[in-house]
Structures are given as structure tokens and as C-alpha cells.
């Protein structure tokens, strides 16, 4: 049985972003593996079987793939094709599905819950739909027993236990447990690894149509807040002044 983990690279979460000519720019902030995808790699490595990391993207996607190899994935595959720029999540899901099918014999496909660049959080469920597999998203725990799996999911109202037949798609929340750090040996291995690149011809598909069009990217309006510091006196006196200000906002 094979296990696939789908990952991508994003600007570091501490990066400052600005809109320049309608594009997002993060200056010289580094690209890193999407933080949510680290949980996906962790969960994939905890299953029995060989884990293959998969990423659609250009040269930079190797940053994520090498991180996954360093964490312990057996193989990495990059899907790269000039026809794949500006994909929406619908197109990404179709290409990932084609790659998962080409890998073949895959029982479990792991995803991050959301990519912190576009913040869509759609690809896992959409890939599951294309493959016709169960979408077992936002998982806190995963227990495989033969060809069935039981997951505990974290939803707004609490926790839900769901059982399903494999194959299935999974995404993880933080309660799953912290992802491991790459080992020294892992980093060395990853730096030497040859990562095969597949193009669309190799997947046997045409570039899927993109239906979601980005018209522009803007800086958010500046928040015009000037902080008023409340000071002077005992905590009780400060609290009185602060309470007056809060009441005057007419929120409560």
C-alpha cells in the first residue's frame, strides 16, 4: 500500500506581504513548506507503508519536497508544466488526482488543511471528489484497521467520529500532534535526492480549465487606530478608566 502526501511551498508565516502591481510580494522572506503540510507529512509517516511526497509547482516546490524527504518520506515527485501557472484549487485537485492515479495503489492521501498563501482550504475535499474517495478532513486522530479507517474530526461544534473504507483523503488539525523535525541524516539524504518531474503529457491529461480568476491583489486599508494608553493610579483606578472607555464604544 502506498501513501501520498500533497505539499507546497509558501512564504514564511512571519513574512511581511505587500501588493505590488497587483501581485503579492514578500521581499526576501524565505519560502518554506506550508506549515499545515508538516502535519500532513507527520500523519503520513505514522502510517504503515512508503510515503511519497507530491507537489505541483516550479523549481521552488523542491523546497517543500526536500523538507518532506528530510522528515522521512521515501520519495518525492514534482509535477511541473508551463501550462500549469495560475491554477485555481479546482485545477490543482484535478492534476493531483491524475498524479495520485499514476502513482497507483494509493490507499491514503494526506493534505494540509489549508495553504497559508491563498487560504482556500478547498483542495483536500475537491481532490477527494475527483477521486471518488471519502474526505476525512480536519482529523485529530486516525486509526486504520485493514481496509477501514476511523477518524476523529474537529468541527466547530466539537468532535465527530467517522468511519470509512479506504482509500481516503485526509487533512489534519494541530491537535493531531506536533510534526517531527527533519533529522541530520534526513537533511543530508534530501540534499542529494534526485526528484523526478512529471509533465502533463506524462500524466496523460490536458491542462484543466481554471474558472476562478484573480482580478487584483491589494493592500488592506490602513487601520486608523491610535492607541490611547490608560495609566495612573492603582489597578482599580486604571480598570475604572478602561471600563469607561469600553462602555463608551457602545459595544456591550
Amino acid at each position: 500500500m502506498k501513501i501520498v502526501v500533497c505539499i507546497k511551498e509558501v512564504p514564511d508565516s512571519a513574512a511581511t506581504l505587500v501588493a505590488e502591481d497587483g501581485q503579492a510580494s514578500w521581499g526576501d522572506a524565505p519560502l518554506v513548506i506550508n506549515p499545515w503540510d508538516e502535519y500532513a507529512v507527520e500523519a503520513a509517516l505514522n502510517q504503515e507503508g512508503d510515503v511519497i511526497a507530491l507537489s505541483i509547482g516550479g523549481e521552488d516546490s523542491k523546497i517543500a519536497l526536500k523538507h518532506a524527504l528530510a522528515m522521512g518520506c521515501k520519495e518525492a515527485i514534482q509535477v511541473s508544466d508551463d501550462a500549469l501557472s495560475n491554477m485555481d484549487t479546482q485545477a490543482t485537485a484535478k492534476v493531483l488526482s491524475a498524479a495520485i492515479q499514476k502513482i497507483g495503489d494509493v490507499d491514503m492521501a494526506f493534505f494540509g488543511r489549508q495553504a497559508i498563501d491563498g487560504d482556500a482550504g478547498l483542495t483536500p475535499a475537491q481532490t477527494a471528489r475527483v477521486l471518488g474517495w471519502s474526505a476525512l478532513t480536519l482529523a485529530v486522530s486516525i486509526a486504520v484497521d485493514g481496509d477501514t479507517v476511523k477518524v476523529e474530526r474537529s468541527i466547530e461544534e466539537g468532535r465527530e467520529t467517522v468511519s470509512a473504507k479506504l482509500p481516503a483523503v485526509f487533512s489534519l488539525v494541530k491537535d493531531y500532534g506536533e510534526p517531527r523535525y527533519p533529522s541530520f541524516m534526513g537533511i543530508r539524504k534530501a540534499s542529494r535526492a534526485k526528484i523526478p518531474a512529471w509533465d502533463l503529457a506524462e500524466l496523460g491529461i490536458e491542462a484543466p480549465a481554471t474558472t476562478v480568476e484573480v482580478v487584483g491583489i491589494e493592500n488592506p486599508p490602513k487601520r486608523d487606530v491610535r492607541v490611547e494608553m490608560i495609566d495612573g493610579g492603582s489597578p482599580a483606578e486604571i480598570a475604572e478608566k478602561l471600563a469607561e472607555r469600553i462602555m463608551a464604544e457602545k459595544i456591550l
Binding site: 512564504p11 508565516s13 513574512a15 511581511t16 506581504l17 505587500v18 501588493a19 503579492a24 497559508i116 498563501d117 491563498g118 487560504d119 474558472t211 476562478v212 480568476e213 484573480v214 482580478v215 487584483g216 491583489i217 491589494e218 493592500n219 488592506p220
Partner: peptide, 20 residues
């Protein structure tokens, strides 16, 4: 529908339409 959505955790805003 011309929609505005926060991206990069609200550090930027994206304007977007659905062509289907």
C-alpha cells in the same frame, strides 16, 4: 460577483470572480 477575500492571513486582499 466581484468578491473580496483576505489572503496570506489577511495581510493582503484579493479581488476575484468566478467565470462559470
Amino acid at each position: 460577483v466581484l468578491a473580496t477575500r483576505p489572503i496570506y492571513a489577511g495581510k493582503l486582499l484579493q479581488k476575484t470572480v468566478c467565470n462559470a
